[in-house]
Design a protein around this nucleic acid. Structure first.
Lengths: 226, 226
DNA sequence: GCTAGACAACACAGATCGGTATCTTCACCT
DNA sequence: AGGTGAAGATACCGATCTGTGTTGTCTAGC
């Protein structure tokens, strides 16, 4: 795994959204399951379970999704689910870790395509976010949704969520230092706030434009912080 | 109800947090159940149910909270719950509407204490948010949490959530016009983003400072938009 | 060809879910 | 005193929940 980006390098490809009834041969990710941020994994039993769980957790909620529905959607037996993940909590954690890794993989791959300065890269973040928000299957960030659904003292989940955020924060901090802002730590916190705000505002309103609003405010901050 | 703030004027007071086991004589709100944003309502059966449901929905999630637990916590019979609210969905809607009204009541009451210009009032918003975040029982915004937990096509919930946001947006727009910003509509969207981002970032990190970060970016925007 | 392991299929357990029906209690009003 | 309505108590319904146990089937490796 890359120590900065935290990517375990899944192969990127095109996945398709499927409904609950039929099992799916090649699975999609929860994060932008349509065209934007999908990954093609090996067609193993545990991957099918993870993918089915991702879809259902993100569209119906974690607690409201039953293990029977997950196994049915994955086209596997329920016994396999418990064999691979122990219990439902183990599956939830595995799903979040996979979603996080896949999202970062997609994000940093997109980021690698831009040939820009540190400032340009920091601002390009929000173009990529807008691309994510525009996906017809965008439903918000699974980590934010999980944080809202589970109690604040669920430490295992909270650790996974913060680890994902800290991968991103590390990258932002590195760019901010290259750029030479006055207080890189502050820039990281501002960007966290802008990203989370854009995600939630876009999720609630259905309007991807909030990515552009976040970008504008990020630009204002960068201009002001040098 | 005030047409701008959308307040139904509950009396403000001090509530206390209680655990699940014992029924509570006087109930608290979910939004800052400790010292910041609590309200004292009449001690009626439906109020007890609403308060118990608020607490449980916000701490364990909407879908994971059962009606039995709500009735037990409220110290009422389950039959009373169905008598008053029809079904669980009706209770959820009533809880969100009550939480929204109480939050706005608290927010605009706090706002009324500041004797400032339009710009000062717009920035004071974030001081009030920080007060909210600092409450030991802060668990995020119930509306944001609900939006993450339920599917995107739950239209009744979405209507309630957007109505709450639009009350706030109306106030921000009014202040922005008084201040004479270039594009009040844009200011409203920026403030929405900053508020949502501060709420989520504070919720996930447990750090109330994000309110101050949001305030700083709001100030930057206001300075830039005139 | 045999064996070991992975997995599907199915039944089942105990608990809890949302929701209903019945009956009792109790406060209040005329 | 009698009536009325709100609410508590309780039992119950069918469905679903997480999780387990068993059995059959298929495939890969030796």
């Amino acid at each position: 795994m890359d120590s900065v980006t935290g990517i375990e390098a899944p192969q990127l490809g095109v996945g398709e959204a499927r409904d609950d009834a039929a099992p799916m041969p090649v699975e999609t990710l929860c994060l932008g399951a349509g065209t934007v941020c999908s990954a093609r994994y090996a067609d193993t039993t545990s991957e099918r379970l993870l993918a089915a769980a991702s879809w259902l957790f993100c569209h119906a909620g974690f607690q409201a999704t039953g293990v029977d529905a997950i196994a049915r959607r994955a086209g596997t037996a329920k016994t396999s689910l418990y064999k691979h993940f122990g219990n439902k909590d183990g599956l939830i954690e595995a799903v979040l870790e996979r979603e996080g890794a896949a999202w970062r993989s997609w994000f940093f791959t997109e980021m690698g395509k831009t040939n820009a300065t540190a400032e340009g890269r920091l601002l390009a973040m929000f173009d990529i976010l807008e691309c994510w928000f525009s996906d017809p299957h965008f439903f918000g960030c699974p980590f934010i949704n999980a944080a809202g659904e589970f109690d604040i003292d669920n430490s295992r989940l909270r650790t996974i969520i913060r680890a994902h955020k800290s991968h991103l924060n590390g990258w932002v901090a590195a760019q901010a230092e290259i750029l030479g802002v006055k207080d890189p730590r502050l820039t990281v916190e501002y960007f966290t706030l802008l990203m989370d705000g854009a995600i939630v505002a876009a999720q609630i309103s259905g309007n991807p434009e909030y990515a552009r609003h976040a970008k504008a405010m990020a630009a204002l901050h960068l201009k002001d912080s040098r």
